[in-house]
């Protein structure tokens, strides 16, 4: 009996381990319950939503009716397409501008370098809400409000990317850059063909960080977008939740499921990158 206990303990199944698991599973339940309830409601008829008793399972299964209703009430797929376009546009410009700047800060000596880096560190602390007013005014005066450009422009520069990639490039061996110069490779080609490929994990981590942040951002789209056909997912969700007079909870939850699904699926496939991204950056 004691031998069995020891063996179980060694396999992480001793009484104390089981107690910890039980405790953690309660937390897991609390954490995941909203997701469960969201999916459950999206699959259940409206009549069940408004009953005063609790049930774990749809008593009548309505299949994808709620999803069909949600898709017909609002252009959800359009919202998601907007999200994809905006996230991709932002990420591409961020990488194209931040990588060379980070490389210059990491591997070159030039006048103004210390000032530039100090500004990057300062900018790191400034949230979007601070430059929002003047940017809005500028966009209003140039007539570019309510456009994809307006959605993306404040985020083209990611000082966070500069900071992160500088850190990564600093640890890239000078010898390899020297070898590349001796081999006759041009400076830009050294950066994009030799240095950048070795920063793959950091770039992946940053991409995930950037996509998550901008897919989920509500503040800026709320300010600059007035046409529903340009709304990214969170703003679309807000429109949808707003006119809930005619909307059932079922359709609302179906819409929420659809709009959260893409990131969730990416996360489940690339969770290692997500978690490493957080530990590498420590910034949300």
């Amino acid at each position: 009996m004691t031998a069995l206990l020891t063996r179980l303990r060694r396999q992480g199944l001793g009484p104390r381990d089981l107690a910890v698991h039980a405790f953690l599973l309660v937390f897991v339940f609390i954490t995941l319950f909203p997701f469960y309830w969201m999916i459950l409601t999206s699959l259940r008829p409206a009549s069940e939503v408004f009953t005063a008793h609790f049930s774990w399972w749809p008593e009548t299964f309505v299949g994808l009716d709620n999803f069909r209703a949600a898709l017909s009430q609002a252009p959800l797929l359009r919202f998601m397409l907007n999200g994809v376009l905006v996230c991709a546009g932002i990420l591409i410009v961020q990488l194209l501008t931040a990588i060379p700047c980070a490389y210059a800060l990491a591997k070159f000596e030039f006048r103004g370098k210390a000032l530039l880096f100090a500004l990057v560190l300062f900018a790191l602390c400034v949230p979007i809400q601070v430059p929002a007013l003047p940017l809005y005014v500028a966009l209003a005066f140039t007539g570019t409000l309510d456009s994809y450009f307006a959605l993306m422009v404040p985020f083209f520069l990611s000082v966070f990317a500069i900071f992160l990639f500088r850190q990564v490039f600093k640890s890239f061996p000078d010898d390899i850059i020297h070898a590349a110069r001796l081999d006759g490779i041009g400076e830009a080609e050294i950066l994009w063909r030799i240095v950048v490929p070795s920063a793959g994990p950091a770039i992946a981590a940053f991409a995930i960080f950037s996509i998550t942040a901008h897919w989920n951002d509500l503040y800026w789209p709320l300010i600059v977008i007035t046409s529903p056909e340009l709304a990214p997912p969170p703003l679309g969700m807000m429109y949808f939740a707003d006119n809930d007079s005619g909307t059932t909870f079922g359709a609302l939850m179906a819409a929420a499921t659809l709009l959260t699904a893409p990131l969730m699926i990416i996360f489940l496939f690339a969770q290692r990158h997500f978690i490493r991204g957080v530990t590498m950056t420590g910034v949300k």
Partner: peptide, 30 residues
Amino acid sequence: APPKARDVAMVFQSYALYPHMTVFDNIATP
């Protein structure tokens, strides 16, 4: 003259091989 115009080759203590390239591509690059 920049390094590539000097017609010199260098072997580094750390070898300085391009980490993401195959051996063939490493040698073929110059």
